[in-house]
């Protein structure tokens, strides 16, 4: 079974090549992470042109800042965090996140214990969930994506989005309920 050190050292040679600004290493690293990071951007930003723009900015950032990567974390987590941050920047620039995370608009603690309506097995498919996710509001979609698809916990999401842990939990709970409703509405 791979150890934590193994994960940290994944693509070590490629990263060292990128730190030497070796273009082949940069292309190879891009090749490894382009697809999952593009899908992350699509989930967060919804539109392919936004996803492309943000992925471009993020990877330029990755290669410009890779000198500072010191192998304390895994390169995948490091790249993912940069891509997530650029997505958040993009949404904030377009003022799409501010109202969704306004604590005055949400009863932060409420709902977190309520469960989402049940979704029958036949209503659950990758394509259906992808489609329904894109119909969620920005705030719901971002929290749901970060928690469910990217594996961040609520403490990390709170830090990334500069919100409280309670707001993150509340948003996630509401997002799941809304998603379940959307899946049940789908024909």
């Amino acid at each position: 079974m791979p150890t934590a050190a193994d994960f940290r050292d994944t693509h070590r040679e490629l990263v060292l090549g990128c730190q030497r600004k070796d273009r082949n290493a940069q292309r190879a690293l891009y090749g490894h992470y382009a697809k999952p990071m593009y899908n992350l951007c699509l989930r967060m930003l919804r539109h392919s042109h936004d996803a492309e723009d943000v992925l471009q900015v993020a990877f330029v950032d990755v290669f410009s800042k890779i000198d500072t990567f010191n192998f304390e974390a895994s390169i995948s987590a490091w790249i993912k965090r940069i891509v997530v941050n650029r997505c958040i920047d993009h949404l904030k620039k377009r003022r799409l996140l501010t109202t969704d995370f306004d604590p005055d608009r949400h009863d932060i603690i409420a709902d977190t214990t309520d469960t989402a309506p049940a979704v029958s097995a036949e209503k659950m498919s990758v394509e259906r969930i992808k489609k329904a996710t894109l119909e969620l509001s920005e705030g719901y979609r971002v929290v749901l994506s970060l928690y469910l698809f990217e594996g961040y916990d609520h403490e990390e999401i709170a830090q990334i989005l500069d919100i409280s842990v309670g707001t993150s939990k509340s948003q996630y709970s509401r997002a799941k309920k809304r998603l379940a409703a959307l899946l049940n509405e789908q024909k």
């Binding site: 382009a34 697809k35 593009y38 899908n39 492309e52 992925l55 471009q56 990758v126």
Partner: peptide, 17 residues
């Protein structure tokens, strides 16, 4: 859920930038 492939033109844009 990560099945969508980024368009090939994106790589060119990133390295030109």
């Amino acid at each position: 859920f990560d099945g969508t492939t980024p368009p090939p033109r994106l790589e060119g844009r990133i390295f030109a930038a």
